[in-house]
């Protein structure tokens, strides 16, 4: 796998002409977006004046609403405008730059900006048992490294709650969802989830966690502090979560940082890893110049971290019955 400096060289040498073409497109887009902002600001002002003159005594109880209604309306108009204006640029960036970078990092990989991990795969993982109402995603990367087939994409899963007449949307998961062939054969399911209870409740946490499912208590105190494990069978869970596997999961947690939750599941012959960044990855910001490598560097770091999972989790080591 190529390292960051190699990708930087590739960016400035091999695909820089494409990058410069896109940069021109970006500058044009920024101009259009600024005009859009101006239009939205004018719409806001006109609506504010009209509301203030005509409706203040009839429809709105106070001046705050007179400001908020036009404000949100103009923001919505800008957001819709921005989506349509940036569509081509985002698409160009992903096909001309991101795809090239991914295939440079690892030539066996494919990229499709419009596809994502299927709902069926997401449900099979058993990681999120909560009901959800919106399922979206993009940027599917798939391929094989050595013997291991894998795929990952951005996913954004939301559920809704009702508060009287109002419907509120909440994010259940937003980040990278990774699926790969696992290097051991087993029957059953083992799920590793972030432990929110133990840091607060200590020993009592086990009591509550036991009620949620078949709790697996493991012999690695650091792992036990950060994760809670459920599984169908005590022996299978330990067959999968060996001491070295627990260390690898802890290292991954360290890499993604404190604020990012990771969830894992082992099911059938697959390993599922959900990294909850709480934001969409690989989306270019039109207000940032493509001549500067820093934003691209972040994408490369994320891509390398995910692709490296095959290596980090030693998924190609098939010393067991699986070939």
């Amino acid at each position: 796998m190529k390292d960051l400096s190699q990708v930087k060289d590739f960016y400035y040498k091999d695909i820089y002409s494409k990058v410069l073409d896109l940069e021109l497109e970006r500058l044009e887009l920024v101009g259009k977006l600024q005009i859009m902002m101006g239009i939205s600001a004018i719409i806001f002002l006109i609506m504010f004046i009209l509301f203030y003159i005509y409706f203040i005594d009839d429809f709105f109880p106070d001046i705050i609403l007179t400001i908020f209604a036009p404000f949100f309306l103009s923001i919505a108009i800008y957001a819709i405008g921005q989506y349509f204006l940036t569509k081509n640029y985002v698409s160009g960036f992903k096909n001309e730059v991101l795809k090239e970078i991914i295939q440079f990092i690892e030539p066996n990989l494919n990229f499709d900006k419009d596809r994502y991990i299927s709902r069926n795969d997401f449900n099979t993982s058993n990681i999120f048992n909560q009901q959800y109402h919106k399922y979206n995603g993009n940027d599917l990367v798939y391929g094989t490294i050595d013997k291991t087939k894998f795929l990952f994409s951005d996913l954004h899963i939301e559920y809704k709650t009702k508060n009287g007449e109002d419907t509120n949307w909440h994010t259940l998961f937003q980040g990278i969802f990774f699926i790969a062939d696992f290097n051991k054969e087993f029957i059953g399911n083992v799920v590793v989830l972030p432990d929110y209870m133990t840091p607060t409740f200590g020993l009592i946490a086990n009591f509550f966690q036991n009620m949620k499912g078949n709790l697996i208590k493991l012999d690695n105190p650091e792992f036990e502090k950060k994760f809670v494990v459920y599984g169908d069978d005590q022996i299978t869970a330990r067959y999968i979560l060996t001491h070295s596997m627990m260390d690898r999961i802890l290292k991954l947690k360290e890499k993604v940082g404190k604020r990012v939750d990771i969830h894992l599941s082992f099911m059938g012959d697959k390993i599922y890893i959900a990294i909850d960044y709480r934001e969409d990855q690989f989306e270019p910001n039109p207000f940032k110049s493509l001549k500067d490598f820093t934003p691209i560097e972040n994408y490369v770091q994320t891509l390398r971290l995910i692709i490296n999972l095959v290596e980090d989790f030693k998924l190609n080591d098939r010393l067991w019955s699986k070939d």
Partner: peptide, 11 residues
Amino acid sequence: AQISASRRAYN
């Protein structure tokens, strides 16, 4: 590997 896992589960 399974023996090692089963011993840990037993313990």
